[in-house]
């Protein structure tokens, strides 16, 4: 998928989420950011951590026979604020990382993620 398409994917996810998503980004397995939205704000920490967490949990999943992992959800507490970090492995070894707002519509996020391959 070209970089423009990834940028469009991130923009569409954030725009369609009805404020359930604060940001979306696509990173490589090494944590390199390929695309992100909002375009004026990039969370490099989330990209690095997301890639590391996915790598670790993927290894555990494979080692303990969980099969191919389709999604990772992490509930986070940071400075009293609760958010979710949603990560989905994509084709070509890329990872889609979503950061939710404090009160996200998880059903809507599930629906939006179903369309991502």
């Amino acid at each position: 998928m070209p970089e423009e398409s990834l940028m469009e994917l991130c923009r569409r996810l954030v725009a369609s989420s009805r404020e359930s998503l604060e940001s979306a980004m696509v990173v490589t397995e090494d944590g390199v950011i390929l695309a992100h939205n909002p375009v004026d704000r990039v969370n490099e920490d989330a990209a690095a951590v997301g890639a590391a967490v996915v790598a670790g949990l993927k290894y555990i999943s494979e080692h303990y026979g969980l099969g191919k992992v389709s999604r990772f959800d992490v509930d986070l507490v940071s400075g009293g604020a609760r958010r979710k970090l949603v990560m989905k492995p994509m084709e070509g070894g890329k990872i889609l990382i979503l950061i939710t707002s404090q009160r996200p519509n998880l059903g809507l996020i599930d629906l939006l993620l179903e369309q991502v391959r």
């Binding site: 951590v49 999943s61 389709s70 990772f72 992490v74 509930d75």
Partner: peptide
């Protein structure tokens, strides 16, 4: 180690769900 990666950024993971094909963690 996975939890520590989050801790290092000052993010406390209260729950993690991994959905696999036919199994979940």
């Amino acid at each position: 180690e996975s939890i520590r990666n989050l801790d290092e950024l000052g993010l406390e993971a209260t729950a993690i769900q991994v959905k696999g094909r036919g199994t979940s963690l």
